[in-house]
Structures are given as structure tokens and as C-alpha cells.
Design a protein around this nucleic acid. Sequence first.
DNA 1: GTCGTTGCAAAGCGTTTGCAGCCTA
DNA 2: TAGGCTGCAAACGCTTTGCAACGAC
Lengths: 124, 124
Amino acid sequence: MRRDTQRREAIRNTILEAQRPLTISEIFELTRQKIEGIGIATVYRSLKTLQEDGVIVPVNFSGQPVRWEGADKCHHHHFLCLSCNKLYEIPSCPEGLARILPEGFDLEDHDLLLRGRCNACAGK
Amino acid sequence: MRRDTQRREAIRNTILEAQRPLTISEIFELTRQKIEGIGIATVYRSLKTLQEDGVIVPVNFSGQPVRWEGADKCHHHHFLCLSCNKLYEIPSCPEGLARILPEGFDLEDHDLLLRGRCNACAGK
DNA sequence: GTCGTTGCAAAGCGTTTGCAGCCTA
DNA sequence: TAGGCTGCAAACGCTTTGCAACGAC
């Protein structure tokens, strides 16, 4: 049985209201602005239960610390602009990925990160 | 000035001879079969210098420990088995990725991780 | 009142580093 | 012989956990 607590609610809102995926220390700092005495252990425990409850999902980029974003987004990918370093959400998804797998492999899921120049930077 | 040592050479061979990217503990265990007294610190230090020398590259994926593979490989992708947690190399590459990008975006590069069951685990 | 939640501090765990001895060139 | 390399153990930083107090229901 899960209880609705002030702290977990604050952490949840911090993540869902952010415009981008947040690292654990960002979540900790931002939530501490709302609830001063909150401990880092509570952040870790809340991230775990929020993920279990399907409220948030982890986002990983190569060599970067884990970040968290709301799970309410549709399946999407990311595009990193190599010029301005901005991260875009790409709502589309390539088809036929299973075709590149060796015989006998079952595909369940995938992560895709595209890199290049966004429209603003490509035009320059 | 870099010296050619037995230990770094053994670590280098362990990685280059593997059929898939290896985690640090895999590299440590496999190399220890060749050189019994080798220490984990030597593995970490050798990975660093081998990367600096462009011999190996790190492979980072969602929630997974860093793995290492030879830097001499052609463009390829990876498949993570959700049962046995092994990371496989996929030599093929999906086509038409640029099609999912918004208008005006230039695609230069991409990372793709597929997840599912490998042929050994899917058969069970 | 029950028992899930929390802050604190300690424990874990993977990685890095200081050091003295070893080994390559 | 110089100085890069190594094993050991201690240090480090991030994450998890034990525990007693707190608070949601």
C-alpha cells in the first residue's frame, strides 16, 4: 500500500514540471527549494517507487549521469545538435529495426539517439 | 613515454579478441586467467591508457555498466539481451533514419541499442 | 494504532589514488 | 639507471540500507 506524502509529491512535480530530463542532484536541489529538510535518501527512494508506479522513466545518454523524465510521454527518441548542444525530442520512430537482427533474436525495445545539426544551426 | 608491458598487452588482447564488448569485471576475470596476480587497479589504469592511445573505445548504454571494445571496428550497433544481460554486436544498420527527422535537420551520426532476447535465451 | 515514509549515519560498492617496490627500455 | 608500471590498501563519491522517529490513513 503506497501513501501520498508531501515529499514524494514534491519530487514527482519537480520532474514532471521540468522542461528536460533532470539528474538526481538537480532533482534534489530543486525539491529542496520547496521542502528544506529533505534528505538525499528520500530522493533515491522516491525515484524508485515513482518508477515502479510508472510515473517516471530513466533517461541515459552515453557517459552522462542518469536523468529522469515523466513517463507520460509517447514513445520518442532524441536528437542532439552538435552545434548548439540542444536536445530535441523526435516523436517519430524508424520501422523495421528487427530486420537487422541475427536469426533467432527477439526484439522487444530500442533506444535511438540521433546526432547532427538542428534546423537553426544547419541553416547557418 | 609508454612502455609495452605484459599486463597491458594481456588486457588489450582480452578486449580485442572478444566477440562482444566486455565489462570491467569481465575484462578483469578473463585477463586474470592469463596473469594470475593482476590487480583491478591495473585494469582501470590500462583501460585509460588504451583509450588514450586509440586502441579501445567505451560503450555506454542505458543503466548498464561501461563496456569496452576495439576501436578498429566498422560502424555497428548493439543488442542487449534482457535475460542474460550480454551485449552483442550487430553489424547491420537501419536505413532511412534521416526520414524521421523534422524538416531542416541534418543527420550526421547515430547510436542505436536494441533490447530483447538473444537466440540462446529466446529458445528456452 | 498500524505500518509506510523519512532523516541520519553507516555501510556498500565500484573507481581512483598514494606509495613503495618492480620492470622496461 | 630513470621513470613508467604495478599491487596493495586507503580514499573517494555515489547509492543503498538499518534504525528509530514521524506521519498518512
